[in-house]
Design a binder for these strands. Structure first.
Length: 400
DNA sequence: TCTGGGGTCCTAGGACCC
DNA sequence: TCTGGGGTCCTAGGACCC
């Protein structure tokens, strides 16, 4: 039986969601109809465009570019800050609505998902009407628009939803691949990014069709094990199933770009305290213990370094993660100016199996866990901002 | 172009063991 | 002190996605 898969993608998600939220709060204008973006301040180094309105797109403004560049394209562009709490709420509202139609949904990101239609298709007239039904329901109930792509697998559905925007439904069935997908530039193919498309171009492979017909042995020489997958994708072949996502993260991390590059160890360690605190807190919220910790840094010249370590005992304790992060940092750091630092935890387990080392007593561990728990409880009551950094945590401990 | 922050997955090379 | 070859596991870095 031939599969039918939908890919549902919110149009200009962050911008649409901010617009809906503003209207809900009584704002009279709809920023989707203006030249507007979601992003940081133009003078800040974090001032990049996270989302843009359709009028902004028409001015040539692109996601990912700096606010400075956006202002060059239209000096009157309006910029609004992102609000991730709002986005989280809008996202879960949307998924709740979608689950009414099918349980076979795989979240691909905060604003995108795949829906396996194959198993519910007997309930509906046809897949096109089904897509229209969903699209209209989202528009009417939630106030924003989506693009929906329909195909015989995830890859084609995803490619289809990208065809033209906003508020569109497109199909890319197996018998449409040659006409609709092969003429596209090879960089449009999912998983073919900048570096790969550059290499492909050197081999005179410029369109998806070129890749589909390319010599497999030649591809293999340059792309090793990726070669056959690339060529399969170009032919619209994809056996990846839609798997219900129970939000099983493989890693949880935080990183931040400094306002200006620094080699001030004090400042760097303070930043690690802040990042670690947020990461550990999230682990505890999800009742996870990490067996791996890694840190990464980016130099002024955009060279990245990372260092990771496995722990003997899984942990979600702020102090333990921080100490490891600092040690890892010192092992890689050579003293140059740093642009960004980050901490990531991975390899999770659900329960604690702590083997005592000779240096620590049972009491010590208990105390650490109590401190973490207290902080989490205060945050639970008063919100995350009430205790903002691990420095506070240290003071608290000293008082005891 | 002067480049955020959250992730996932792959690969080459080194360590270690037999 | 020089030396093979295979297997496994780990890590750093890179490519990709939104």
């Amino acid at each position: 039986m031939e599969r039918l898969v939908l890919h549902i993608d919110v149009n200009n998600a962050f911008l649409s969601w901010t617009a809906v939220d503003m209207i809900k709060k009584g704002y009279k204008k709809d920023i989707r109809e203006e030249v507007s973006v979601i992003g940081g301040h133009a003078h800040s180094r974090r001032g990049v465009v996270l989302a843009k309105s359709t009028p902004a797109k028409k001015k040539g403004i692109k996601t990912g570019e700096t606010m400075y560049q956006a202002l060059l394209k239209d000096k009157n562009v309006k910029s609004y800050p992102p609000n991730f709490d709002v986005y989280q709420k809008m996202s879960s509202d949307m998924f709740e609505l979608l689950y009414k139609y099918s349980p076979d949904i795989e979240k691909f990101s905060i604003d995108e998902c795949f829906l396996e239609f194959t198993n519910v298709k007997y309930l509906y007239k046809n897949v096109n009407d089904f897509a229209k039904l969903i699209s209209n329901d989202i528009k009417k109930t939630l106030g924003f628009t989506v693009n929906i792509g329909i195909g015989n697998n995830k890859l084609c559905a995803k490619m289809a939803s990208n065809f033209s925007k906003p508020d569109k439904i497109h199909t890319l069935f197996n018998d449409e691949i040659q006409n609709k997908m092969w003429p596209l530039d090879v960089s449009e193919l999912l998983w073919i990014g900048k570096k790969t498309s550059l290499k492909l171009r050197e081999l005179n492979i410029n369109t998806i069709g070129d890749l589909a017909k390319a010599d497999e042995a030649l591809l293999r020489r340059f792309f090793k094990n990726q070669a056959s997958k690339m060529r399969m994708h170009a032919n619209g072949i994809d056996y990846d199933p839609v798997v219900e996502s129970v939000s099983k993260n493989a890693s949880i991390g935080k990183s931040i770009t400094f306002m200006e590059d620094t080699n001030d160890l004090n400042k760097i360690f303070k930043t690690f305290e802040m990042l670690t605190d947020q990461v550990a807190s999230k682990l505890r919220k999800e009742k996870k213990y990490a067996c791996g910790i890694s840190i990464n840094l980016k130099s002024s010249y955009f060279k990245t370094y990372s260092k990771q370590r496995k722990l003997k005992n899984p942990t979600n304790n702020t102090k333990v993660i921080l100490e490891n992060a600092k040690e890892l940092f010192e092992e890689v750091y050579s003293g140059e100016d740093v642009r960004l630092v980050g901490v990531t935890t991975y390899n999770f387990v659900d329960s604690l199996t702590h083997q005592l080392s000779i240096f620590e007593s049972e009491d010590n561990i208990k105390e650490e866990l109590t401190i973490d728990k207290t902080i989490d409880e205060i945050r639970g009551k008063f919100g995350d901002t009430i205790i903002s950094s691990a420095s506070v945590y240290k003071n608290k401990k000293e008082k005891k």
